[in-house]
């Protein structure tokens, strides 16, 4: 198992290098010029100096190498030295965002908690709702509950987050009277600090709408997987054996069938984690959560190449990492699968 993990990690390196190259070259073709937003009165030579100060004068392969080493070595080293104090921070300038002139990594770390709070909670909520729905749907196949579950998950698949989010705002922020319990804020206030019960309650209320929108999609996908996996296992011989032994239905379903059915579902849950980061781009935009997804959008609109490159690369790393985690989890949970 360990050798398998090591081999997969080694194989991930060329994949990530290739992806980083694609991302870098794609953005390098950008006709967008960082100085195009500056006033026209700036003379050309000053403009050229600004470009060079942003590191644009050098050939492509040198810039790529600088960016890559910055991403995978200098930035982590900087944070490691900040956190532990074991060694001095590297003598290399931080990677700066073109729009704010602040280090890209600092901005990302600043915004990460918002994303994790909203998106992470939504994923947990979605999974927690999906699992019982999937189990009951499979156990009572073709019942009214199952039909309703199928329909709801079909809706969850079909309604894109930019419509469900707007619909939620129309219903709960616009349609409800302001003092009603069912009124929820449509704008996520990041400056809110949770100090007492009142602010905690406020925080909960402002998270309700984005979490609902994201959880609907998660629920739709995971509950279908759970149902299919349970159905596969319910027909197996070991279930008949367990029943023949006289075990109660709850033990048969919750212990025997559920444990075996969870194996593929757990890997699907792991695979969904990076996708949720991607899906959160739209949801964060709608509810004005200033998380990572919204940062990507404003960076794209401002032609802020370093930020876009870094964010896209982080998304790619997450996808590769969680693919690996899913495969390893499969091997750990299912003793029939051995990676040699």
């Amino acid at each position: 198992m360990l050798t398998y993990v090591i081999r997969r990690l080694l194989m991930a390196i060329p994949t990530l290098i290739f992806i980083s190259l694609i991302i870098f070259l794609l953005l390098d073709l950008a006709p967008g010029d960082p100085t195009s937003q500056l006033p026209l009165t700036i003379p050309d030579e000053v403009r050229q100096q600004i470009r060079e100060s942003l590191g644009l004068g050098q050939p492509v392969h040198i810039r790529y190498w600088k960016w890559l080493t910055q991403m995978v070595y200098y930035e982590p080293a900087y944070y490691l030295s900040q956190a532990t104090g074991w060694f001095d921070p590297p003598e290399v300038a931080r990677m700066l965002s073109w729009q704010t002139r602040a280090p890209v990594m600092d901005i990302i770390l600043e915004r990460l908690p918002q994303t994790l709070r909203v998106v992470g909670l939504a994923y947990v909520v979605g999974v927690l709702i999906a699992l019982p729905i999937g189990i009951i749907s499979a156990y009572r196949q073709y019942s009214v509950f199952d039909q309703a579950g199928t329909f709801v998950s079909m809706i969850g698949y079909s309604i894109p987050p930019f419509f469900s989010g707007v619909l939620m705002i129309v219903i709960f922020s616009v349609g409800m009277p302001r003092d009603s319990f069912w009124w929820f804020p449509s704008v996520y206030d990041t400056t809110l600090k949770v100090v007492d019960w009142e602010t905690f309650w406020k925080q909960v209320r402002q998270m309700v709408l984005p979490v609902m929108v994201l959880a609907l999609q998660t629920t739709a996908q995971i509950s279908r997987f759970m149902r299919a996996s349970m159905l596969d296992n319910l027909g197996q011989d070991y279930v008949r054996t367990a029943r023949a032994k006289g075990l109660t239905e709850s033990v048969v379903v919750m212990k025997h069938v559920l444990r075996n059915s969870m194996i593929p579902v757990v890997t699907v849950i792991a695979l969904g984690v990076p996708a949720i980061f991607g899906g959160a781009i739209i949801t964060e935009q709608i509810f004005k959560v200033n998380g990572i997804g919204q940062f990507l959008i404003i960076s794209i609109q401002a032609s802020d190449v370093p930020s876009v490159q870094t964010l896209t690369f982080i998304f790619a790393v997450l996808i590769v990492l969680f693919n690996l985690i899913a495969d390893v989890l499969y091997g750990i949970l299912d003793p029939r699968i051995r990676y040699d």
Partner: peptide, 23 residues
């Protein structure tokens, strides 16, 4: 194919559209 599946698609789509729309 595996490589394409590992790409973050929505961000890349956004970037592609931003880059090539003008030209």
């Amino acid at each position: 194919t595996d490589l394409f599946l590992a790409l973050p698609l929505l961000p890349l789509l956004l970037v592609m559209v931003m880059l090539f729309r003008q030209s």
